[in-house]
């Protein structure tokens, strides 16, 4: 079975994003970048399927400028067999990304596509669902457990009130939630080996997808700051403040 894992290069999750002084966007100059945390979980899940003998090929794909090859090399070091870079300098919307991925799914025919449920920069939480729609496949979003049996994937999903389990006919699309697994770190020998693994590059505009923007970014601003609070000395003072000053308890 072939597994396709789309990954995204984003701001490192430990770095606090800063807004540019002209409010045009977030400032990413000289900011540490990394693989989106949910994508790391997707890569890990695919590699575990390969280790279990369920998958025989894991392909990582990333869409963006040249720099995202760094994250593709990381995916190869973690155990992906092959990487594909769909190159573009345009800032894409989730729908564009899903359309490009749909073209790749058509070419590669993976039985399973595993994606992160959202990226920590745009926080859209759209691409997997859109890819499922565009390829006419079923979707198992926010997965905390994936069990493959025959031509079915049983996916346990993190929903607001608890856990929902659905059974999907393969081929299918799965998006990862936090508890699906704990991603490994790449070992040094594997990082060296990854340099020799295949990484194909294709131009985004060669795939015949209209990448014209549909949503304009007008402004980016800092969120409203909370006014500095106070340190109370005791539980008694805290309760008094909550009753008489904040009036949130009676």
């Amino acid at each position: 079975m072939k597994v396709l894992v789309p990954i995204k290069r984003v701001i490192d999750y430990n770095v606090k994003a800063r807004v540019k002084p002209d409010n045009s966007d977030v400032d990413l100059t000289n900011v540490k970048m990394a693989m989106n945390p949910f994508c790391e979980i997707a890569v890990e899940e695919a590699i575990r399927l390969k280790e279990a003998g369920t998958a025989n090929e894991v392909i990582a794909v990333s869409i963006g400028d040249k720099a995202c090859q760094e994250q593709l090399r990381t995916a190869l070091a973690l155990g992906a067999d092959k990487a594909i870079h769909i190159e573009t300098d345009i800032k894409l919307e989730s729908l564009h990304v899903a359309k490009l991925l749909a073209k790749l799914v058509e070419q590669e025919q993976p039985e399973l596509v595993i994606l992160g449920k959202q990226s920590i920069d745009s926080d859209n939480n759209q691409t997997g669902q859109m890819l499922a729609a565009l390829t006419g496949r079923s979707q198992g979003t926010f997965a905390s457990k994936v069990v493959l049996e025959g031509n079915k994937a049983q996916v346990t999903r993190e929903v607001d009130g608890g856990l929902q389990t659905v059974s999907l006919s393969l081929p299918a699309i799965v998006t990862t939630d936090l508890r699906l697994n704990e991603p490994r770190y790449a070992s040094l020998p594997n990082i060296m080996k990854a340099k020799r693994k295949p990484l194909d590059v294709m131009a985004a505009d060669s795939l015949g997808v209209d990448l014209a923007p549909r949503v304009e970014l007008l402004q980016v601003e800092e969120p409203a700051k909370r006014e500095a609070g106070m340190i109370v000395e005791s539980v008694e003072q805290l309760v008094t403040k909550l009753k008489t000053e904040a009036k949130v308890i009676s």
Partner: peptide, 13 residues
């Protein structure tokens, strides 16, 4: 966006 560290104003066409 960015975990609420920035607020984007977006216009859909």
């Amino acid at each position: 966006i960015y975990a609420g560290n920035a607020i984007a104003t977006v216009k859909s066409n």
